[in-house]
Structure formats: structure tokens, C-alpha cells
Design a protein around this nucleic acid. Sequence first.
DNA 1: CGAGCGTTTGAACAGCGTCAAAACAAGTGG
DNA 2: CCACTTGTTTTGACGCTGTTCAAACGCTCG
Lengths: 218, 218
Amino acid sequence: MTVEQSNVHSITAPGKLITVAPGLALPGYSLSFEANEEIFGEGESANFVYKVLTGAVRTTHSLGEGRRQIGGFHLPGDVFGLEWGATHRCSAEAIAASEVALVRRSALDRAAARDGDAARQLWSLASRELASVQDHVQLLGHKNPAERVGGFLLKLSKRAASATVELPMSRGDIGDHLGLTLETVSRTMRQLAREQAIALPSARRVVLRDTAALAAAA
Amino acid sequence: MTVEQSNVHSITAPGKLITVAPGLALPGYSLSFEANEEIFGEGESANFVYKVLTGAVRTTHSLGEGRRQIGGFHLPGDVFGLEWGATHRCSAEAIAASEVALVRRSALDRAAARDGDAARQLWSLASRELASVQDHVQLLGHKNPAERVGGFLLKLSKRAASATVELPMSRGDIGDHLGLTLETVSRTMRQLAREQAIALPSARRVVLRDTAALAAAA
DNA sequence: CGAGCGTTTGAACAGCGTCAAAACAAGTGG
DNA sequence: CCACTTGTTTTGACGCTGTTCAAACGCTCG
């Protein structure tokens, strides 16, 4: 999907400056998506780089037979959809109603070619992505449900810089991210709550009570 | 470990030109390692980039409690140990007796700064790494043992451009790579052999008989 | 108030891990 | 050449853990 085709969306702020990385701001559009709406699809040409302004986004790989892997969740401030090649290797969907900024990839490439510091910022962005995926491999390879959920909640809490975390995604989304079923995610979170490691004021709100226990589990 | 410290190793070919990427050759050393010898450790400063000349290498992440994740296997021609940051995020060990070439990272950085094409080659190297790790996340997230082992063997066969594959690594290594126990790896390979998908002339030699069945399993 | 979705909980099953032992391969020294 | 050692692979039996199937519950929003 390109901006030209997306006549269904309201371009809320055309031409605004988007901060892709520290010290790298470029003009971009801004689109609104409702929950579960696709932002881009696997295999589409990667003409844009995206940044979450409000809401939340998931990037998914389809595996057929209804199985899917959620590569990651993106919260306000996160950049996603940055590809090295010509096409997107995953699809992206809004989890909740979200505003997303778009920056032309060609503009990014030009900035990187012109400015060595901009190129270094892009490199740093990509390498952080790589580190995050490698951590995820460790999690999926040899960890039990408590460790997976515990680590996931810790990461969210650290990201939010707060002990209370608002979960924009469903249990099923978390399961597809952590390689578990939604039932196991639910049971594990209940168990962590029973053990006082977390509190669950509501299904989508988590308060981290004993981060040491969560880290030990992770 | 730096080259200066490694007096135990014979520098077999000092000053030889090493092809790090297509069209990017730089002077480098060449060291010999015996089986299970450490090439570099997690957390050490990443002063070199490495390339397998002969033998095979594994890169591992330690998880404590005897658990480890093998991030990948590297065969002759493969480059490994390329980091964005100052330190290695994984350790590397020779699986069998191996010759490994070393190129100074500072030389690589200079080449990238000087030559735009060299920088692009490095970027391509890193992005292929990222794609490979993302594929691995899919494998670990939602696949059963037959799919994991089948996909693993297919990748090796494709890499070797041959239906018969020589496995330099043990069942345990494969298990730590695929998130399985060594027993499950052994059982799965035996089962694939029983189903005529592969043949096992010996434990370390695999002949792919029915790649379609392996791909379906994968 | 009711409909629909997400979450929780239960019960039964199956698959993979764990533990243990045997088979096998390869090297070492007598 | 054989006995012995060491490490890897294979096979078996068992138990646990997470999945599957199913039903009840509780929000949230018409």
C-alpha cells in the first residue's frame, strides 16, 4: 500500500518533520489506522519507513495453517518497517487505533548518503533491531512460559519506565510473540499474580511487584 | 583474545588478502584452532572480523544453568564475528579443527568510510544476518521437531549445493541450535530416515532423498 | 439489557524432556 | 592385533508441561 493509494485514510499532518533517529529529522506524512488494520503487507515494496505516534503496532510473519509469528510490538516513538532490501519481510498491523508517521525511504537513503552521522544513526537503529531479535531467539529457544512472560513484562516495564504497564495487545498476540498459546499466557500471568510477582488490576493492566522474581524467572 | 596474545596459535599466513565480501578484500591473519577451542568470548572487545577458511565454527550465547543457545553455524567462506558495537555479543568456538582468517575491524571501518561500495557490502552482510535470525525466530516459535530438523537439513543442503550433507556438529549442537534436546534430534532424524525423507549412511552424513517432504515438514 | 469479543478456568491428551542404559565409533597403549 | 578408554549416538521407559478442546465468565459497547 502506498500513500497515493490510501485514500481511505486521512492524512492528518502532511509535510511534518519526523524524527527517525536522534539528530535525524525528515519530512513525512502521518496516517491514522484503526484496530487490526493493515499498515503494510509482507512482500510489498518498502517505499516508506514508519514511526508510531500514538497507539501500538505489531509486525507479523505468516506461517500458513493459521500459524503466525509476531516479530515485535511497536509503541509510540518506535520506528518500524525499516528494510535493507526492496520489499517488506513482514506485515504490520495496528493493534489499537493508531497514528503512524511515514517517511519516504528515498529521502532516508539520500540523507544517509549525504550525512555520515545520519548513516551511523541508521546503522545503530538496525543493529539494535538485530540485538533485540537475537535476544528473542534465546527466549524462544530455551525458556519456559514463566520466563517468557516474565521477560516480556520486564521489557515492557523498562520501555515504559514504570512499574505499571498497559497492555495494548491481546493474550493471543502475546502468545504468538512468545511461542505459546493464549491459554498458557493467561494461566502464566495468573500464576505470576498468585505468586505476588505481579498484580492484575484488570486483564490489560499489569503492575510489577517483584521484578527480581520476574528476572529470576526470565 | 587478541592476535598479540595468541602465542599458542601458529599464524599460518600473515598478511594474506582476505575477501570479506564480494569486491572487498583486506589484509588479514590466519589462525588454526582445534576442536572445541574458543575463538572469541562473549563480551570481549570486537577488534577483528573472522572468516572460516576450513572446518566449522559455532557462535553461542550462554544462558546459565548449563543452557546455551547456538546462534548459528559457520562453514568455509562464511564471515562471523561482525559486530556493530565495541564488544562481541556471543562467543565463537571451533567445532572441528579449523583455519580462521582475521581482519582488523579498524581496517574494515576505514574501507567503509573511504569506499561507498564497501559500506554497502557490509550493510548487505549485516542485513543477511538479520534475515537469517528472523527466520530462526519463526522456526523456534511455532515449529515441531520434524519441521525444525527438516528445515535445518534443507538449509545445509542448499548451502552445500548438494543432496548429501556432512555434519560437522554433534546432535547436541544441533539441539542447542534448534531448541531441542539431543535425544529428540536423534529420534527425529531416525524417523525422517524411516519415512525415506533422508538416508543416514552414518551419523554425521545425511543424504536428502525427498526434499518436498522435508519442506512440507518445514 | 443483550450481543460479541477477550479472558479465564477445567479436563484430557500428546509430545517432548529427563533419566538411564546400551550400542557404536574412534583413538590409545599394550 | 586386541583390549581398553572415551565420547557420541541410539533406544527405551516414564513423567511433566504445554496444547487442545470445551465451557463459563466478564468486559465493553451498541
